[in-house]
Simulated assay, not measured.
Amino acid sequence: MLEFAGFLPILLVIGMAAVQLGLIGYGVNQAGTAARAAARVASQDGHGPAAGTAAGRAAVSAWLAPQVSADMGPDTTTATVTVHVPAVIPLFGGWDVSRHATMPTDH
């Protein structure tokens, strides 16, 4: 019983770290998907950066607080999405994860 009580805090920290890594992976996946969606919509003829930003926000879970920017150039459109992954372990403040995607601009 004493051995279990001694290892319980270590097991809890390992479990919380595993959950945290899963959340970070989920945030990376969501940011990448949103960046591709934002770049794809923004690059289409007649849509522009505002539509791309809206598409990027719609592609992410709202609790990740996405920040989306789409920059349309003459040949390519690049979208950047940054999400905030909250911390499961109380000593940390969370992490910001960014992903970029570039698509050819339709003319």
Rank of each mutant, 00 (worst) to 15 (best):
M1I: 10
M1K: 10
E3C: 11
E3T: 12
F4T: 11
F4M: 13
G6F: 13
F7W: 10
P9Y: 07
I10Q: 04
L11P: 03
L12Y: 00
L12F: 09
L12H: 01
L12I: 13
G15S: 13
G15P: 03
A18T: 15
V19H: 12
V19I: 15
Q20N: 12
Q20D: 11
Q20P: 05
Q20V: 12
G22L: 13
L23I: 11
L23V: 09
L23C: 13
L23F: 14
I24A: 09
Y26A: 15
Y26S: 14
N29P: 00
N29C: 07
Q30V: 09
Q30F: 09
G32Y: 00
G32Q: 04
G32D: 05
T33P: 00
T33I: 13
A35T: 09
A35P: 04
A35Q: 03
R36Y: 08
R36I: 03
A37S: 12
A37I: 01
A37R: 00
A38F: 07
A39P: 02
A39T: 08
A39F: 06
R40I: 04
R40F: 10
R40A: 09
R40W: 09
V41C: 04
A42H: 01
A42P: 00
S43F: 03
Q44W: 03
D45G: 08
G46K: 09
H47G: 03
G48V: 05
G48W: 03
G48M: 04
P49T: 14
A50I: 13
A50F: 10
A50K: 12
A51Y: 05
A51S: 15
G52K: 02
G52H: 02
T53I: 15
A54V: 12
A55P: 07
A55Y: 01
A55K: 01
G56F: 02
R57F: 04
A59S: 12
V60T: 14
A62G: 10
A62D: 14
L64K: 04
A65T: 14
P66Y: 07
Q67A: 15
V68S: 07
S69L: 08
A70Q: 07
D71H: 13
D71K: 14
D71A: 15
G73A: 08
G73S: 06
P74H: 10
P74S: 14
D75K: 09
T76F: 11
T76V: 13
T78P: 01
T78D: 06
A79L: 12
A79D: 04
T80W: 04
V81K: 01
T82Q: 06
T82F: 02
T82Y: 04
T82M: 02
V83M: 05
V83R: 00
V83F: 08
H84Q: 11
V85W: 00
V85N: 01
V85H: 04
P86A: 10
A87Y: 03
V88W: 03
V88H: 04
I89N: 11
P90H: 07
F92A: 15
G93Q: 15
G93M: 10
G94H: 07
G94E: 05
W95G: 02
W95Q: 08
W95Y: 12
W95M: 07
D96L: 07
D96S: 12
S98N: 11
R99A: 05
R99G: 02
H100D: 09
H100R: 15
A101H: 02
A101N: 02
A101D: 06
T102H: 03
T102R: 12
T102E: 05
T102L: 02
D106L: 09
H107G: 13
H107Y: 10
